[in-house]
């Protein structure tokens, strides 16, 4: 009688452990795992894409290695979030003063159909001079977004136009191209600027 209970408890225990393992697998590796959009960006050295900057130069992830880098995605037909992000970044760069000149600051469009090199040149001209605008063929923009684990999606609007949903975080890399941290959209300046300084400091440590 007693022995039978032990067997029953044992079976229940094995079942519980199997269930927990199953739940663990589901969350970490299985269908319940976080989607790629939530993953950390690759190091710049592991990315592969070819774009054109707003002055017509060919650029890619290797262009950014050697200096600390700030990258964000957006599009110039965006009336609210993108000019706000660009204004925020312009403000952070003003706070950094001369240090801003030691950084790459890159705005990659998720709407290459409308954001030609000329459109990017005109748009970035209104913000901090350190900000570079990158565009290119749709498949290369897609590869760039994949490397940064950024996502974007075209959404039709009334009147036949369209808007873009897109990752609005700002990515910070050190001079070696390793991710330092990310700045969320609307993160206050008192948090954002120290994060950028961290990327700049890691550059100094890396150099010594």
């Amino acid at each position: 009688m007693q022995r039978r209970h032990v067997v029953q408890y044992g079976a229940a225990g094995v079942g519980a452990v199997a269930l927990m393992l199953g739940v663990g697998w589901w969350r970490v590796d299985g269908p319940g795992a976080p989607k790629p959009a939530g993953q950390r960006p690759l190091p710049l050295s592991a990315m592969d894409f070819r774009l054109t900057d707003h002055e017509g130069n060919e650029v890619g992830p290797e262009t950014l290695i050697g200096r600390p880098t700030m990258v964000f995605f957006g599009f110039t037909y965006c009336p609210d979030v993108c000019p706000t992000t660009l204004s925020d970044i312009s403000g952070w760069l003003e706070d950094l003063g001369d240090d801003a000149a030691r950084m790459n600051v890159v705005f990659i469009t998720v709407d290459p159909e409308r954001d030609t090199v000329e459109a990017m040149a005109e748009y970035v001209g209104y913000f901090h001079p350190a900000i570079r605008g990158w565009t290119g063929p749709a498949n290369q923009v897609a590869r760039a977004a994949e490397g940064f684990r950024a996502s974007y999606e075209r959404v039709p609007t009334e009147g036949g136009d369209y808007t873009m949903n897109h990752t609005a975080s700002v990515f910070l890399f050190d001079a070696k191209g390793e991710l330092v941290t990310m700045i969320d959209y609307h993160e206050p300046r008192e948090f954002a600027v120290p994060k950028i300084r961290r990327a700049l400091t890691e550059d100094v440590e890396g150099a010594t």
Binding site: G38, V155, G159, S169
Partner: peptide, 20 residues
Amino acid sequence: VMPEIHESKTNADGVSSMAP
């Protein structure tokens, strides 16, 4: 021609979207 009140939202994955 088409002024409307829209709302921008940013989800937990950091993706911003906009809708009327």
